[in-house]
Design a protein around this nucleic acid. Structure first.
Length: 686
DNA sequence: TGTAACTCCCCTCCG
DNA sequence: GGGAGTTACA
């Protein structure tokens, strides 16, 4: 039936295109001009884009003239791998990756027009906050008795302002009302921050987008960049911000071959400045847009979709889409009511083991949660039971102090102007604090960044030996230029650093392992520069898990934040802490907008499940209180599961090993039901 | 000038 | 439990 309306369907539309449904086919083979694909969860979005890329290549579009922007590098890789297997030609030259990663690549080519040297370094969130903190201290805002926002908060405010393009005072008033008094100080800090980044040739994440946009305002550069790409495809368009939309507009002034894919019901990144207005207004920005909507869900069984639809049904801002599936099942999703968090861990582990026995590998199962630390207790239990796992999201390997230390050495070698890294490295030495570090950095700048000049510098006695060793090492690596492998450089730096590690940070054993891991990763890179930026733009997952790094073909369970689960799917999904205050997070219950976003996040989590969906609700939490002593808090079920929805779930009350200290009224099943009844408030009107 | 010990406060999601 | 700021002391 695909063939009905086009006898002139090109011969390239060979058998593989028949694996698509009508809508998907229409999207994949859309010839030219703007295309908006509204793709509900699980409707074959990845597949459609992969086919479209393959189709374009078969039509004769050169791979290097295709730009595929995705939310994570993983997503780009997956789509390109699929496309390659379809069109049997290399997709390696396709420009694929996140906005940030592609921006980084383009800035190294065209950056000089914006006074950027090609060897600039990229500062991650923490580096950027450190720089802001330094400036705050210098400008004298820290020691004043007036409360001034912390460096991480300053960083968020800054990011918010540049990404949403709202005036500082509006952002403060709406999002950070307790910082209003700091407005003037913040302005000064931001101005200095931008100046300093320029001097250091350091860009933060936001700059990768801002400079890209800025380059597009220079007509010659803009034209060259636009003509470089014949087709642009953008995934997860609902999670792009204003700057990103402007970049796309800049890239498509003459050529209007642009495809964007997204789902307004899955917009979950407004804290990063994303706005669903981008997707809603796309047809206005690009006249003559063709809109294709994908609604048939190929992922989940119908009972799972029923719950998902019901959760969305109560959204304050209504979405009209209703997902449907041909995959019938009598198995309803399960709402598991547990006594407390410990029992929740037991239940999750038991069910996972049961499904594993039934033949569902660990990799086809995932535990999802709202915040990185929500899985802490579960991780301990998994380790105890020898269930290997990988954790996505949360604190990353790259953010640990020792990895940042080692990276600082590499950054200095790559970009000697990077004072921030110099400060980090110098202060590792015995007897060197902020003052001495500053003197050394000033000296170095006066000596035109020549490492050799450091040999003349008079450091405090306590530091002399370590300092000399450092200078020798830096000189020898720099002197050898590209002749030493990146991994060898890491190895030599690691040898220098390890004696310092123990004094600087506790817990040296897992930290050493991380550094070995870093060296291992470095083997894949030919240039030090790309190693450093890749690590900041696309950091590897945590390797210091309790269970240890899983071997290559070992099976492992996935733990993931709900945000990082975007775009993934598993046969069995366990959403833990389906408790009000966790989902929605009590950090995000301020206004309707954020509650709605939490609802969409919950929706994303639910729609990851193919066959089995478990929602776990521990109704009692330990609360640690220093003065009053520990006590138990009773929690309420997430407000996103009111009475009408709980009817779609199979409710299961578990009593595992009820702790000895539970109150009498909960010592029986009846008592528990009664207690839950109080907590449930199913008729509460939200 | 550097550092160890002590206090207080706050804790999300990501490239 | 960890980061940031303060204080006492080497």
């Amino acid at each position: 039936m695909h063939q009905k309306n086009n006898e002139q369907k090109p011969e390239v539309a060979s058998s593989w295109l028949e694996q698509l449904n009508d809508r998907q086919l229409e999207a994949a083979t859309h010839s030219a001009g703007p295309l908006l694909i509204i793709a509900g969860a699980g409707t074959g979005k990845t597949r459609t884009i992969a086919y479209r890329v393959a189709w374009l290549i078969q039509q004769g579009v050169a791979p290097e003239r295709i730009l595929l922007l995705t939310f994570t590098r993983r997503a780009a890789q997956e789509m390109l791998n699929r496309a390659r297997s379809l069109c049997r030609s290399s997709t390696g030259k396709v420009w694929g990756g996140t906005f940030h990663a592609v921006g980084n690549r383009l800035l190294r080519i065209y950056g000089r027009a914006a006074k950027l040297e090609p060897d600039f370094t990229v500062a991650d969130e923490a580096d950027s906050a450190d720089l802001l903190g330094m400036i705050r201290t210098e400008l004298g805002y820290s020691s004043k008795d007036k409360r001034f926002p912390r460096k991480a908060t300053i960083r968020s405010i800054y990011s918010r302002v540049v990404n949403s393009r709202e005036p500082l005072e509006d952002v403060l008033e709406k999002e950070y009302p307790w910082c209003i008094e700091a407005e003037k100080g913040l302005r000064g800090i931001f101005t200095e921050y931008n100046k300093r980044k320029q001097e250091l040739q350091v860009l933060d994440y936001d700059d990768l987008l801002l400079f890209w946009k800025y380059l597009l305002e220079i007509p010659e550069v803009r034209e060259r960049m636009e003509s470089q790409f014949e087709h642009i495809l953008v995934d997860e368009y609902q999670d792009t911000n204003i700057v990103q939309a402007e970049i796309l507009l800049g890239l498509r002034q003459k050529n209007n071959n642009i495809t964007v894919v997204g789902d307004d019901a899955q917009s979950i990144y407004s804290f990063r400045g994303a706005t669903i207005r981008n997707i809603l207004e796309f047809p206005k920005q690009f006249p003559d847009t063709t809109i294709v909507t994908l609604e048939e869900n190929y992922r989940s069984v119908q009972p799972v979709l029923d719950v998902a639809n019901a959760v969305m049904e109560q959204a304050r801002f209504k979405y009209t889409k209703n997902l449907w599936s041909n995959r019938k099942s009598k198995q309803r999703p399960i709402l598991m009511v547990c006594t407390d968090e410990a029992e929740q861990c037991q239940m999750v582990c038991d069910e996972i083991a049961k499904h594993l026995d039934e033949g569902i590998p660990l990799q086809a199962q995932a535990v999802l949660f709202r915040a990185g630390h929500h899985s802490d207790m579960l991780e301990v239990e998994l380790a105890r039971r020898n269930i290997p796992f990988h954790k996505y999201g949360g604190l990353k390997f790259i953010e640990t102090a020792h990895v940042k230390d080692l990276l600082a050495f590499l950054r200095i070698l790559e970009n000697p102007r990077d004072d921030l890294s110099w400060f980090r490295v110098l202060q590792m030495l015995d007897g060197v604090g902020p003052k001495t570090a500053r003197r050394i950095v000033v000296h170095l700048r006066e000596q035109k960044l020549e490492f050799q000049s450091l040999t003349e510098f008079d450091v405090p006695a306590a530091a002399q030996e370590q300092f000399a060793g450092l200078v020798d090492l830096l000189l020898s690596i720099q002197g050898a230029g590209r002749k030493i492998e990146v991994a060898t450089q890491v190895e030599r730096l690691r040898n220098y650093y390890e004696p310092l590690l123990e004094r600087l940070h506790g817990n040296p054993v897992p930290r050493r392992r991380d550094l070995e891991q870093l060296e291992h990763i470095a083997q894949r890179y030919r240039s030090r520069g790309s190693f450093i930026t890749d690590l900041t733009l696309d950091p590897p997952q945590s390797t210091a898990d309790f269970a240890g790094p899983p071997l290559k073909d070992e099976d492992f369970l996935i733990l993931s934040t709900m945000h990082s689960a975007k775009g993934c799917e598993w046969q069995a999904v366990y959403v833990i802490h389906a408790t009000d205050g966790m989902i929605p997070s009590d950090m995000a219950t301020g206004d309707d907008e954020s509650i709605e976003e939490e609802r969409r996040l919950f929706y994303v989590a639910i729609t990851r499940a193919k066959d089995w969906l478990y929602l776990l609700f521990p109704f009692r939490y330990y609360a640690r209180r220093f003065r009053t002593g520990d006590f138990h808090n009773y929690a309420q079920l997430t407000r996103f599961l009111p009475a009408g929805v709980t009817g779609l779930l199979k409710q299961q009350i578990v009593r595992y090993g009820i702790p000895e200290d539970v109150p009498v009224e909960m010592d029986s099943e009846q008592g528990i039901r009664q207690k839950i009844g109080e907590l449930w408030q199913p008729d509460q009107d939200f």
